[in-house]
Nucleic acid binder design. Structure first.
Lengths: 196, 196, 196, 196
DNA sequence: CATGAATGAGTGTTCATTCAT
DNA sequence: CATGAATGAACACTCATTCAT
């Protein structure tokens, strides 16, 4: 009771719980719409799917980027956390790199339009770019460095273009059965190998 | 009778020449706008640049894809024709492949937004996709086959995903100095090499 | 029992004091926001400034006009009370009028957007209009009458248009250094003088 | 036939004539809506009144200010032109000033919301402000100067605040029968008179 | 009695596409 | 055959107001 004198009847977070439930509804709806219409789907569609007004979306996620981030936050975080783990548990840094990249690709490939959104230079997506980069770039860098240090791959490839390359290769990977992003990314990684 | 079989009733040639001049104006204008605003630039901008009405654009190029194709036709054709030539003149099929890919990348990287348009699943771009594929896929296939035959690369990679991969890697290559598409594509190609 | 006759059942005073403190917080917040964003500022901004929910604002002040009135009540009252005082203490009724008008202008000019709100015919501001008129019109009328009676000004100008005129002249007086409301109002008052 | 080879059948401006007719429809519709809903009326309302799509409005008048200006251009111009004429034909510069001001007031008072729009500091109305000032300020200045020169009024009042004052006094003049802008403006002008 | 989440009408603005001239 | 005016669907975003907690 330090600064809130308003201790009414019961729950110390009843409103909060409701709002949170609603947030989850929103996230689920957004995820669903993202799958069918991509991450640039009209706000109204998402609102409709969630059964709420558009205002609610804007309240919770002022920016589209905020919504996208929220939708995928857990998975991005998981991907980030997997980096060190893989490094520790894999037979070699290069293998760890391969596995991590695979994880990352698996994530991107299943999100309709996300890979493309990550490459777009639309104002309003900087936050999204920033989030991904903040979260994953260090991890990727660490893996790359380790593989360089172990002598398995050439040095000289910055993690940034590497990640963007992977992201790019994932564009349109769903929606086209003839295209196999995973395979191409594997090729890209293979291309890093020290020839000798 | 070089490429237009449609010789209708009247026009004794002078009219034909006029029309062609007009068409060229359109193409030049479109090219200019594509450079600055990308291939998805508003039709009106292109019309304005050409100094014609939008209707004229639509008459000549019913679909945006038609316009894009027309703008880049020569360069696509050149790229297509370079395939066999390179194969004949290069020290090895793999080198020919490398050179051809480089050519292709050079083409895509300088066309603002074209690489992205090639990957978009927007209805209305199928024609564009089709044209590129019709024109370049066989060439790419031939180069790939030759390199497989010479034992320089693994077999098993279809030319379609390979080309799409290259195209994808070129997305956003202009407009971001930290990203080096050519380098990544080189890595991808290197990844094809037979390890032994 | 000075101005609130509504003493309901329970509250023994301490609660009353709390409520009043709360109300004051609201008024202070509103005043602050009015200064920066004008009297038509979003309700939420005011709520935020006060650190309360919007519902609280609505509970205390069902209408925006109610809030505005409450914020400026003291000053309006002071202005109203100054009328008779000035009349008694000034060398002549006309001088009293001049001084009172100056007071009024001084009040309006410093309230961002208030003068404009007083002229707006937006539904929802009638209460505000009514309050100002109820409070100040009689005072203004008295001053005008006295000056007519003393032969200093022409008769025939109703206090209502006079007050509205003054209010109008104060619109936009802040925010434009090239505009001098006080000067113009002085001219208006001077125009009332009996020519002879 | 210098630069337009397109001399078809008949009219050298048939399209032009149509468009112009349409423009007039737009202006009439806008004027009508301005009367009922003020110059800040929704674009859609104006479009509906004119029986056109909103796009048509934007085509002809990219900015709201452009539309407002167009609607009132003739009258503003007439007002501007009346200045010198009145100066030449009136018994004295002061009388000319009175008459001109009356003209100006007559114009403003009949345009619902225009006077207010002229005082608003909304971005997007600068063009409107600029137009009025460009057109009328010099005229007003000339009249003021002449009346000063003739010794009829005090010097020292800049035309800018004077005009803004007049404009302000006209706010809300329609829609309130108890308010008489003309009378107040007359007072303001009278206030300028040299006392002796 | 306070909260602030939710609502959704309202508005500006863009642009592909059609079609009368 | 060219023109470009007209159309209107589509979208983002804001805020006053209500009401469940």
């Amino acid at each position: 009771m330090d600064d809130t004198g308003r201790s009414s009847a019961s729950a110390p977070g009843s409103r909060r719980k409701d709002a949170r439930r609603n947030q989850q509804t929103l996230l689920d709806a957004a995820a669903a719409i993202f799958v069918t219409s991509g991450v640039e789907a009209p706000v109204r569609d998402i609102a409709a799917e969630a059964g709420v007004g558009v205002g609610t979306i804007y309240r919770h996620f002022p920016t589209r980027a905020d919504l996208v981030i929220a939708v995928y936050r857990h998975q991005v975080d998981a991907c980030a956390e997997a980096g060190p783990t893989l490094l520790a548990s894999s037979p070699s840094p290069f293998v760890a790199l391969e596995r991590w990249v695979d994880l990352f690709v698996g994530f991107l490939v299943t999100k309709h339009g996300l890979a493309a959104a990550l490459q777009t230079d639309n104002t309003g997506f900087e936050t999204l770019h920033a989030y991904f980069l903040d979260r994953l770039l260090p991890v990727c860098a660490q893996l790359l460095d380790a593989a360089v240090a172990s002598g398995e791959i050439r040095s000289g490839l910055d993690p940034y273009p590497f990640m963007r390359g992977i992201g790019n290769l994932c564009i349109g990977a769903d929606s086209d059965p003839r295209y196999d992003a995973r395979r191409l990314v594997a090729l890209l990684v293979a291309g890093l190998r020290r020839s000798g």
